[in-house]
Design a protein around this nucleic acid. Structure first.
Lengths: 344, 344
DNA sequence: CGAGATTATCGAAGCGCTTCGACGATCAGG
DNA sequence: CCTGATCGTCGAAGCGCTTCGATAATCTCG
């Protein structure tokens, strides 16, 4: 029995050309005449030739595979994850790349393994935290990567994240559209406004600027995460601004406490107070009532991440940070303001 | 600047041994003395050596990667899919393999691409249909594979599927435990019992045998899928067996119609009639009331699939079909039978 | 019409690793 | 003490592909 695997040499022989010619036909890196190219393609088809990925990667130092590092174990919202993964695979394929699935719980060692072994040309990391332990490793590795999320120090990296400025703005607009005139932002804890990359600032600025542009009365308030601190903040807010009817909450940890606090202040949601959150869909859907919320558009993130990675693979240096337009999903926590007068 | 990538030759030089010795230290395929081995390992660590995956795959004809073919676009129940994917990745890693993610909608061409290019050593295909177009392709390919699901013709393949015999049995036992004495099975349409691989038969046999063993009065009934046909079947069943209090439904398409039919016959679920379904969790949870149901245990399936694949990669030929123990999740459609007498 | 540019192709040198055969050195048994 | 095994190591031959000159052959234009 002959060797079962068809090699490029077989194709070359069959087509009556040299091995290198076949290679150039395949890669298009040198001009090849129409006739030769056609003949080679015919031979390829006739023999059922598929280039050996390993040989290719050895010779060219390119594997045409990217790593997708996912937090598979965690309590992330699964549908979003899948949507994201699907987008990554689809995009990658459209760039002729395959996707190696790596679990986040392999940690930095996992990255090193696939990257240093030249198994992948680049990496996409989902769910990157502010002080992610994988970031230093990533910096050492010579492979390009794209992060979903914004670590504190993103110099020299490529990150994709939600555009929090617009997220703040879109929340205001949503409330304004529902007729609310006096609104507030419950933001991150005080300390977050001081350290970190200012995503909290960006949300607040978007919130305040848009409120001003739309002529709303707006106040932005940092908010701690402990239940009683939240309650205190909410109470104070309601006392100082008795006519408040709209609330934007940008603080995952505090969301539930805010709802509790409102309830105990006798404010019904959404009848007396509309609430819009900036948080994962998962959280918004678990809440009672379900929260109108702004969330990251998963497949756009996936697509973008791959585009950026491909750019880096082709020696283009994309912006360090790409911000994606936020999407507001209306749910049961926001409601047209109850009106006493007449309103168009 | 020197070459940035550390090769096995660098390690050999650093350790003062030959290249082949380093290779043998790594693979363990030949005896190496303790001292040499230690020295080599030290050099590997000192230099930060990671073997080049492509070179390795080229020389050894093994990539240490398996393909995971998932129906990413489809309306499958996402959490189950993720659970499954996680199990596959974790298992694969424990066998020192990585996982390449391939979408099912690439079809047979996708399989051919990754398999023929020696990109993967083997494949795991999720969600294989009875007449799956990928099966013929899979047969041509020389790579070993494991299928989740049972195509009609599974000769020469390796498949993992739910143990439907036990699924039937476990449903009966569940109903018996709740005190039901007279039960029925609404199965697949008549035609399914004739063609196909008899998973319908297996469920029915498990159902009938267990009922008999437990001394229950049981009847098995094929069931069409159209709403009116289902209604007719249900009505007839209730007429012929007025004391029926337990129903097992093994027919995804008919489940909703069965519930409707029961309702219109004045039977409340679960008060008057307990229902247990054999169907995806997704469906069971969407129904009203939510259905006690038997579903495939996703991570066990993933684990098994990888184990079987590894067996094949090591030239062991596993059984063509592996059946997994079913798991019954009690929900709101099954209930202790209302009793008129005294029961322990 | 001829010098230089361009086009189409080839040969050969690796890419980094595995694996086979060979070869001393050490060991066990008669 | 000699003869085979066994052990530990080495050198070299690929694995299938890309890519870098080199070489004809053809074209372009003053």
């Amino acid at each position: 029995m002959k060797k079962s695997v068809v090699t490029i040499a077989d194709v070359a022989r069959h087509a009556g050309v040299s091995v290198s010619t076949v290679s150039y036909v395949l890669s298009g890196k040198r001009a090849i005449s129409q006739t030769t190219s056609a003949r080679v393609h015919a031979s390829i088809r006739a023999l059922g030739f598929h280039p050996h990925a390993g040989a290719r990667s050895l010779a060219s130092n390119r594997s045409s595979v990217i790593a997708l590092v996912l937090p598979l174990r965690q309590g992330m919202h699964l549908p979003v994850l899948m949507q994201f993964a699907t987008a990554v695979v689809t995009s990658a394929r459209s760039h002729d790349h395959d996707v190696l699935l790596v679990t986040a719980d392999e940690g930095p060692a996992g990255l090193r393994r696939v990257a240093a072994g030249a198994m992948v040309d680049g990496l996409v990391l989902m769910d990157v935290e502010m002080h992610d332990p994988r970031v230093p490793t990533l910096r050492q590795l010579d492979r390009p990567s794209v992060l979903i999320g914004l670590p504190v120090d993103w110099t020299g990296l490529t990150c994709v994240d939600l555009d929090f400025h617009r997220a703040g703005a879109i929340c205001v607009r949503h409330l304004a559209d529902l007729g609310h005139r006096e609104i507030a932002l419950l933001g991150a804890p005080e300390v977050v406004y001081q350290r970190d990359t200012g995503y909290a600032h960006r949300t607040r600025d978007g919130f305040l600027e848009t409120a001003e542009a739309l002529g709303l009365s707006a106040v932005a308030q940092p908010c701690e995460e402990a239940a009683d601190a939240v309650k205190e903040t909410v109470t104070a807010l309601l006392t100082e601004h008795p006519k408040l009817t709209g609330l934007v909450v940008h603080n995952e940890a505090a969301v539930a406490h805010v709802l509790d606090a409102l309830r105990s202040e006798g404010k019904r949601v959404p009848e007396d107070m509309s609430v819009v959150a900036i948080c994962p869909d998962e959280l918004a859907e678990r809440s009672h009532p379900t929260l109108s919320s702004v969330q990251i558009p998963a497949d756009e993130v996936g697509r973008q991440a791959v585009e950026l990675l491909m750019a880096k693979l082709n020696d283009r240096e994309p912006p360090a940070i790409t911000l994606l337009p936020p999407v507001l999903t209306p749910r049961n926590s926001s409601f047209p303001v109850r009106i006493t007068g007449i309103r168009s």
